[in-house]
């Protein structure tokens, strides 16, 4: 019987943790101000309180997750049950007052309008947290001895999560590389320095730091000077783990119809 009571604790801890991280990432990355106004319980708040409300929600989740994972104090157990019960009410209210807004449970991934599945999920989570109130062990201990009941809980929650479909869609229909914000310039420079063309031409350059760098479409360009004061330009593709790297040497006086001195090579 005790195995039944504690079986759902690990799920609750993991979900609360994921919710915290996703909310903080959403607020930090921010996107455009106003993006939060389409998300979650924050939508019910006035504009300037939306980010603090989301962060407060994340903080409560973090405290509950830590309390469930590390202790057996009834405060955290009942607190979790109360949190999910309140979430159910908030989602019902959200669906009634702002049918266009997403639940924001996992940050901006949950931007689809609140449906019956999201509400059913919080009801199931409330049930799980009520069952877990009388579990004799901490969440950490429960996680080491997981049973088929835990797996069943995961399956039920996965079936009730619209976010999984959203993530699959995002992977399948990603915006083309040209329209996605690129990786940081330093990360691309590190990829360039790990590439074959860089190793082949490194000794010709006067400086290891580019004097100019810019991004066009899916390429980032780095311009260097070599000992003859010619321009050495490297182009690094912004997508993929081992991106293509091309390079060319353009003579300093050349300002138009130039021919690359080396044929393009890729890493």
């Amino acid at each position: 019987m005790t195995r039944v009571l504690e079986s759902q604790l690990p799920i609750l801890v993991v979900l609360l943790g994921l919710g915290t991280v996703a909310k903080i990432v959403t607020v930090r990355s921010g996107g455009e101000p106003g993006a939060l106004s389409r998300l979650g319980p924050a939508v019910l708040m006035p504009g300037r309180l939306q980010a603090p409300a989301l962060l407060l929600c994340a903080a409560v989740e973090a405290v509950l997750a830590a309390g469930l994972a590390l202790g057996t104090h009834p405060f955290f157990r009942w607190g979790t049950a109360a949190f999910f019960a309140m979430s159910t009410y908030v989602l019902l209210e959200l669906r009634r007052r702002r049918p266009d807004a997403g639940c924001g449970c996992f940050g901006e991934v949950s931007s689809a309008p609140v449906g019956l599945r999201s509400i059913a999920r919080t009801v199931v989570l409330t049930g799980m947290s009520v069952v877990s109130v009388w579990a004799p062990v901490t969440g950490w201990t429960a996680a080491t001895g997981m049973s088929w009941l835990t797996a069943a809980g995961v399956l039920v929650l996965a079936a009730l999560s619209p976010e999984i479909e959203e993530l699959l869609d995002r992977v399948r229909y990603r915006a083309p590389c040209e329209q996605r914000p690129g990786p940081a310039e330093s990360a691309t420079l590190a990829r360039l320095r790990a590439s074959g063309p860089w190793r082949a031409h490194r000794h010709e350059l006067t400086s290891a730091e580019p004097y100019d760098s810019w991004r066009e479409l899916c390429w980032r360009f780095f311009a260097f000077r070599n000992q003859q004061q010619d321009d050495v330009v490297f182009a690094v593709y912004l997508s993929g783990r081992r991106p293509a790297v091309r390079m060319a040497v353009v003579s300093g006086e050349d300002s138009g119809s130039s021919l690359p001195e080396y044929s393009p090579v890729s890493a």
Partner: peptide, 9 residues
């Protein structure tokens, strides 16, 4: 930049 990018690609 335009000349350099064209040469590289």
């Amino acid at each position: 930049r335009r000349v350099l990018a064209a040469a590289a690609l």
